[in-house]
Design a protein around this nucleic acid. Structure first.
Lengths: 384, 384
DNA sequence: ATCAATACTTGACGAAGGAAATTATTGTGC
DNA sequence: GCACAATAATTTCCTTCGTCAAGTATTGAT
């Protein structure tokens, strides 16, 4: 958190993260929220104000019966520091500069000619440089960069163990990215980064448990339980895409049959739409167009896919009972075709009170992935 | 923890629970394990020794190169205090007296004529009295009783919100049981209690995450993530029995089709075995006997059920990635018929490294449920 | 103007844990 | 047998963190 200080008092971190994620709050409100005395909050807030991370707002509207000194809420000074976030895919880099509240200030992207490590790193360095040199005074106030990569990533060491789309194995990405950008780098799995962003700054704020489901080429899921991101003891967690929901379903690339992804993944949808229409050249967008035009077989493909996703989500709700679930991802460009069927599948398969779990289904700007990466670097600041 | 003391130092609780669950450990070993200084462990251990909860063992075998003062490991004095645990089912009470290490010292059970609250409480009082008066000096050293009940239970208030088998609604069980027994009572859901027992004293010891799956009339699951029991925001968690694994499968009492429980629950197995054999009077035990005798249709019913359970377990592994999974329950009396199919279903449906999750499949003495209840009261002591 | 109510600050205090020195107890090399 | 190295446990002193209780600040109501 602070330049020179090996350990920050727990209360300081708690006050900071609570103000950061739960908006302006008075010291007394913070004390209640955190189970601390108001004296402790006063003391914890002081260094944060001195460093410019927090500021005191003017007292606003009266709350209670009308008497008493008005509260002076503490708020984040969002422009105190900026963070770069970059999502790395097999053929593109998407970069953003965010403020402390993870609001995107500017963004850019670059196509990649190949997932070659050196090429990616060169492009990354240029992209970060371009973003920081844009008007806004970002460079002077930016120390950290977050990277989001699909696959098996060790956040604590910044090592990419294996990324199938990028074909990377045991790549010390943090080290190399720090060398080329001069920033302090945090590397995280893309779905986890997005989940973190939603947990800290999106619909998951304040939730003790929370799930984010991404629909796209694959079907992924990030899980927060007990306020902490679930990582999985064997490096696997949130693999909602390979829950089996139909023992007689289509074969999946994982070797089983009837996995959610084998029914609702983008490839699976294209395959099913092609055979339903008898047109082997059909693309995903064609299938969407057909279904929207009222073509019954194409519509049925999306219906089945949505239902499969809903079933998978219900499995999450039945097992861990998150306070809320957000469904998102580039696959939801065809939102209108999926949404009712996701809900129907969920309602059918959710057991008892699990069906009460609020479900937000909404498409997601692709930039959001990069914002997730930036959020991870904000977290890294707070944890430091 | 201690009679008069509103707050116990965190280190004291940490030292106690670690010695309790991870066996005799020297102070230095505890310090390493807990990230504390050895001075802190010395200080934390002292009151525990004075109160008779811990004792110092004689130095045993030398460990390292051979020099240095030998360690004096700290161990639990298991007979310092006893705990009663009772599992309440619709037609029976099963009670045990356990020591601090949750070893069963004596047990008893009583049949219930009806799940009538007053009747159950009367029988409970008599059962507890009978257990404590047995030779062993239990009564003088027993202060706590744990109750395990199926259904929706609020452990913090001791309220049974709804228990379908017992047909109880919003029953303040803790209060009433305390009145009748004079002990401090903790009430917990039965599957959670069993999970806790396995996490503290069984195969889940030391695991950061852990799952226990029970196979019986229903298929249940208790989940530990981040060292803490998962409760579910809407009161639902671990409902592995209603994960849908076959959209065209048999109808389930929950309203959906192809739930794990609709294929592998005891009722479902009987129903399938009856129609497979064309004998409508068949019991569960008959079906087991048939399958063991080599009857192919009966064997197929168990195979399908085991496979369904394995699929459900794989969903748990894919989603939360527990360090290990224990499968148990009275349904595993037919262990030999299930086991290979559970493993096969799990291996097929577990994604990637999730398949590495160790799976223990073993039948479980019915008394174990009561031991789970006792464990919960041991936890309540530690937390107090 | 006074008072009650609420928010915040201050300073004394205590609990908890760490650092380093000290004591305890062993095996090893001579 | 005697220094000594090595490891375990304890003691003493000290820092840190947070609470408590008292005091200050700022409002509306009487």
């Amino acid at each position: 958190m602070f330049p020179e200080a090996d350990a920050v008092a727990p209360a300081v971190t708690a006050v900071f993260t609570t103000v950061l994620t739960e908006g302006p709050l008075s010291r007394v409100a913070l004390a209640r929220r955190l189970g601390l005395s108001s004296a402790a909050v006063t003391k914890a807030a002081r260094p944060l104000i001195e460093l410019g991370y927090l500021e005191e707002l003017a007292a606003t509207e009266r709350t209670g019966p009308g008497a008493g000194r008005p509260a002076s809420p503490l708020a984040i000074r969002a422009d105190r520091e900026f963070f770069v976030g970059v999502k790395i895919t097999g053929d593109e880099l998407i970069g953003v500069v965010c403020d402390l509240r993870a609001e995107v200030r500017t963004s850019a992207h670059r196509r990649l000619s190949a997932p070659d490590v050196d090429h990616v790193l060169t492009e990354l360095g240029e992209l970060v440089g371009e973003l920081l040199d844009r008007p806004g005074g970002y460079r002077a106030r930016t120390r950290r960069l977050g990277l989001a990569v699909s696959g098996d990533v060790d956040r604590s060491t910044g090592l990419v163990r294996y990324s199938p789309f990028l074909r990377w194995h045991d790549l010390p990405l943090r080290e190399q990215a720090e060398k080329i950008t001069g920033l302090t780098v945090t590397v995280e799995n893309d779905v986890k980064a997005l989940t973190t962003a939603e947990h800290w700054f999106g619909e998951g704020v304040g939730a003790e448990s929370f799930a984010l489901v991404t629909v796209g080429a694959g079907i992924g899921c990030g899980l927060v339980v007990g306020g902490r991101l679930v990582s999985g003891s064997h490096g696997v967690a949130g693999e909602i895409g390979h829950i089996g929901i139909d023992v007689n379903g289509p074969a999946c690339h994982c070797g089983s049959r009837g996995c959610v992804e084998a029914i609702a993944g983008a490839d699976a949808i294209v395959r099913q739409a092609r055979s339903a229409a008898g047109r082997p050249e059909l693309t995903f967008d064609d299938a969407v167009a057909l279904a929207r035009a009222g073509d019954a077989p194409a519509g049925a493909v999306f219906a089945r896919a949505g239902d499969a996703i809903g079933s998978g989500i219900a499995a999450v709700a039945n097992l861990v009972g998150p306070a809320r679930i957000v469904v998102s991802g580039e696959g939801l460009a065809a939102y209108d075709l999926f949404e009712p069927h996701i809900r129907a599948g969920f309602q059918r398969q959710a057991f008892g009170a699990a069906a009460d779990c609020p479900l937000s289904i909404r498409p997601l700007p692709f930039e959001e992935w990069a914002r997730g990466a930036a959020t991870v670097s904000i977290q890294a600041l707070v944890a430091s």
